[in-house]
Structure formats: C-alpha cells, structure tokens
C-alpha cells in the first residue's frame, strides 16, 4: 500500500479546501448548528445530571440505584446512540441533542455527587450554629460547593460530547459538521474529509480553551483557597 498523492493530499490542498469552505460560509452555518446542538445536549445533561448527582451524593440508596445506569450511559458506544437516535427521531435535531445529553449526563451526575460528598461539614455546622435554615445552607454552602464540579464535568466531557454530536450527525442529519463529513466521504473526497476534520478539531480546541479560561475566572476563589 503506497501512500501517494491521491491517498494523502498534501497540506496545501487541504488548506485550499478549508479556505473554500470558509469562503462559502458553510463553516459558520454548519458549525453554528452543531455547536448549538451540543450545548442543548449539555442543557439536558445538566437538567437530569444535577438532580441525579444530588441524590447520589446524599443517599446510599440512590447511589446504588443510579450507579449502573449512569456508568452504563457513559459507556455506550457513540454509534449505538447515533443509530438509536436515528431510529427514534429520524433525521432531525433531537437525535444529536439527546445523544449528547445521554453521554454527558454521567460526567455531570458523578461530578455533582462528588461535590455533594465533598461539602465542607464544618461550614454546615457553622451555619446551624448561626441559625441558618436549610434553604440558606443550600444556596450559600451546598450550591457553591458543587458548582465547580459541575463546570469541570462540562468542560471535560465537551470533547466527547462534540465527537458524539458529529457522529450522530454523520448518521442522521441533513446539516451540521457530521453531515458534511459524511457527504465528503460519500463523494470519495479525502481532501474535504480532512478539511472538515481539521476545522472540527480546531473548534474543539478553541472551545475547550474558552471553557478553561471561563472556569478559572468563575472560580477565582478556588485558586486562593488552594494556595492558602
């Protein structure tokens, strides 16, 4: 098997293809669609993951109940989610959104559970010594304790979520990055597959960086706390 020019296009060719795609505006259209679906999926993941994690962190019963389901949901191969999404929803935006939601939910749930278990009991005792009620403790002690964990869960699962989203689109979408990649594959254009892939990766790295910076700013107090 000889790797000649036809099997691996040179960087120049790929860069030209990228430029074409950028110029045509397809980049912004498709990526916007894909990113929106990904973050919608995160919304769902948080919607279910936070309460589940909360229960898991507080009671042994719920921890045992949800454990296998949560771990299982994070272990299902992306392709299975992609196909099932296609089977259930057909071609539409719900499939990718749900797939992202299901595969990210474990990260968030497990991180919330860890956050709950890590709530500083000294602070809870201080609160009751000063006569603070349950709602106040929840709002001022528990919630801020677990927020960094939730955010970390989002940031860390982003790479996987982004990939699953694209994969789901490969199978069953009429728009988005995944769709474009499948289209290029069906057209036997290695160049365009590579072009879209590189852009996909670029967006991934950029967003991860943004999330990391955001996390540092939102939780400034943590760096001081850890240094102290």
């Amino acid at each position: 098997m000889i790797l000649d020019q036809f099997t691996l296009p040179g960087p120049v060719k790929v860069w030209q293809a990228i430029w074409e795609i950028l110029k045509s505006g397809a980049f912004f259209d498709d990526f916007q669609i894909s990113i929106t679906k990904t973050f919608m999926g995160f919304g769902i993941a948080a919607l279910f993951g936070v309460p589940i994690g909360f229960l898991m962190g507080r009671t042994g019963y719920w921890k045992a109940f949800f454990h296998d389901g949560v771990v299982g949901a994070g272990s299902v191969p992306g392709i299975v989610y992609a196909i099932m999404a296609l089977v259930i929803f057909g071609i539409g935006f719900q499939g990718p959104v749900l797939a992202v939601g299901l595969i990210s939910m474990p990260f968030i749930a497990l991180n919330v559970a860890e956050g709950i278990e890590g709530v500083d009991q000294d602070l809870v005792r201080m609160s009751s010594a000063y006569g603070r009620n349950e709602r106040q403790v929840l709002r001022h002690v528990t919630a801020p304790s677990i927020l960094p964990f939730v955010f970390a869960g989002v940031r860390l699962s982003f790479a996987i979520a982004w990939k699953v989203e694209a994969l789901t689109e490969v199978f069953g979408s009429s728009n988005g990055v995944g769709f474009q990649i499948r289209f290029a594959f069906q057209g036997f254009s290695i160049t365009r597959v590579l072009a879209w892939t590189l852009m996909f990766i670029f967006v991934l790295l950029v967003i991860e960086r943004i999330l990391a910076v955001l996390e540092r700013r939102l939780f400034r107090w943590r760096t001081w706390e850890q240094a102290a």
């Binding site: 000294d122 602070l123 010594a129 000063y130 801020p144 001081w224 706390e225």
Partner: peptide, 14 residues
C-alpha cells in the same frame, strides 16, 4: 448565640 470556632469557617466563595 454567637460562635467562634478554632478555624475561621468562612465561606471561601463569598
């Protein structure tokens, strides 16, 4: 009652 503990027990995020 007011209570002062051995460690300050301040909320680090406030």
């Amino acid at each position: 009652l007011g209570y002062v503990f051995q460690d300050p027990r301040l909320l680090p995020w406030r």
